[in-house]
Design a protein around this nucleic acid. Structure first.
Lengths: 119, 119
DNA sequence: CCTACAATTCAACAATCATTGAAATGAGGA
DNA sequence: TCCTCATTTCAATGATTGTTGAATTGTAGG
């Protein structure tokens, strides 16, 4: 992920409605949610949600698929992952020890973490 | 870090000049750089760099200190770390295996990861 | 105290972004 | 085909954000 893509992603996530949509879709998992359901969940108009969904899609944070009459959006985990990697490279560059707390904090470890987080 | 803080941080990083400043300061390390030096490095006017520095400070991405006539800014590693943690919680929530690639990708590992992680 | 320097503040303007409601597209079902 | 539903597109408007140059604050040295 280059700097330009990262900026686009940051901009997408900096807006209240859009950030809520992303969090919603991450929780929804691979099944995703229809545009209309998203609009209802975040309480904005259909045209407005469409505007934000397009922006998030362009930023590589979500991905659409058609299913019958609906368009289902789901989180783009690869895109989110790439953004984290970009941020970690910037944050940790030359200072791995400083960034470590973030890793410990998130309950997200590579498969090497046998025991579950969240005791 | 709550959602509002995260949005402020994302907004700060979504602007070209500001993202360049952050990357510059991360590379500069704890010593930091004077506002004037930053302005020169990113090629913007003093008043403009001041505007962006204030924004980054407000977002918790950089921290200032006075030193003689200069004001030295350095990256706020804690703030950056918190943002990564926020993003990882959102991204990985319930899907740790999906987020793992980001961890492997960044050359930044917690000290708890003795060996492996990339079997 | 006066001057020089580093940085910030301020007001004005330009540019970008978000919201709205109406109209258009596109997929199914009768 | 016709009708309906789900979503998008469009144009207009309001709200935020970024940029500029001049004026200001604060620090240090002569």
């Amino acid at each position: 992920m280059d700097e330009r893509q990262a900026r686009t992603a940051f901009a997408a996530l900096s807006q209240e409605t859009r950030l809520r949509i992303v969090r919603l879709l991450v929780q929804a998992g691979p099944d995703g949610m229809a545009a209309g359901a998203i609009a209802e969940a975040v309480a904005v108009s259909p045209s407005n949600v469409s505007f934000h969904l397009k922006d998030l899609e362009h930023a590589g944070m979500i991905v659409p698929r058609r299913e019958a009459r609906s368009i289902i959006y789901s989180a783009d985990f690869t895109g989110l992952s790439d953004l984290i990697a970009f941020l970690m490279k910037d944050c940790c560059a030359g200072h791995p020890e400083i960034c470590a707390p973030a890793l410990a904090d998130a309950q997200c470890r590579p498969s090497t973490a046998k025991k579950k987080a969240r005791a």
